[in-house]
Simulated assay, not measured.
Amino acid sequence: MRRLQDLAVSADPGSETWVDAATRAKELVELLEPFEAAEGVGPANRVPTLPGSGSLLMPPYAVTKFEADGVELSVEFSRFHVGGNSAVHGGVLPLLFDSIFGMVIHAAGRPISRTGFLHVDYRSVTPIDTRLSARGWIRAVEGRKAFVNAELRRPDETLCAEANGLMIRLLPGQP
């Protein structure tokens, strides 16, 4: 499915092939539609052993550390994530950081929390087709609030982007 996403945004076969591809995509929809499941039942964001925890929205990542003092991931963006010139679209990075923040909260044993804010500083171009490392941690805790940080680095340790945010523990009854 991920390779299909990449090709859907990067292939240039001509209109006849696109029509054929659309027909085949419709056939896949018809094949899978009877099995549509409720949130929390399908693989998206609930199967950590799948790339991107089973979410096609996320870049494929693998968790390499999941401990109370922080989490670490190995992640690789592809053509699907390009903003231009083989660089990752800037809007994709907050998605990754927000997911890391959620993992950090879970790894630390804190109750379910929601993002209060997320700030990203872009430090250098984030390349596609390169295995990157990401890590996140809790910087401070004040009651229901957890202040979190994360960073994304190239193999040579060049900082691509860093983020900080606020995760707020839900009150009873909050969705």
Score class of each variant (00 low, 15 high):
Ser55Glu: 10
Ser55Leu: 13
Leu56Trp: 08
Pro59Leu: 01
Pro59Ser: 04
Tyr61Lys: 07
Val63Thr: 12
Thr64Ala: 13
Phe66Thr: 00
Phe66Glu: 04
Ala68Gly: 06
Asp69Asn: 02
Leu73Cys: 07
Ser78Gly: 11
Phe80Val: 04
His81Arg: 06
Gly84Met: 12
Ala87Asn: 14
His89Met: 10
His89Cys: 09
Gly90Lys: 08
Gly91Met: 11
Gly91Phe: 10
Leu93Glu: 01
Leu93Ile: 04
Pro94Thr: 04
Pro94Asp: 06
Ser99Trp: 08
Phe101Trp: 03
Gly102Gln: 10
Val104Arg: 00
Ile105Val: 09
His106Pro: 02
His106Asn: 15
Ala108Glu: 07
Gly109Ser: 11
Gly109Asn: 10
Arg110Glu: 09
Gly116Leu: 10
His119Arg: 14
Val120Phe: 07
Tyr122Thr: 06
Tyr122His: 10
Ser124Pro: 01
Val125Lys: 03
Pro127Leu: 03
Ile128Thr: 11
Asp129Gly: 05
Arg131Tyr: 15
Arg131Gly: 15
Leu132Asp: 02
Ser133Trp: 11
Arg135Cys: 10
Arg135Pro: 01
Gly136Trp: 01
Arg139Asp: 13
Val141Ile: 14
Glu142His: 12
Gly143Val: 08
Arg144Asp: 08
Arg144Met: 05
Phe147Leu: 06
Ala150Phe: 03
Glu151Leu: 02
Leu152Phe: 07
Arg153Met: 06
Arg154Ser: 07
Asp156Met: 09
Thr158Gly: 14
Thr158Asp: 15
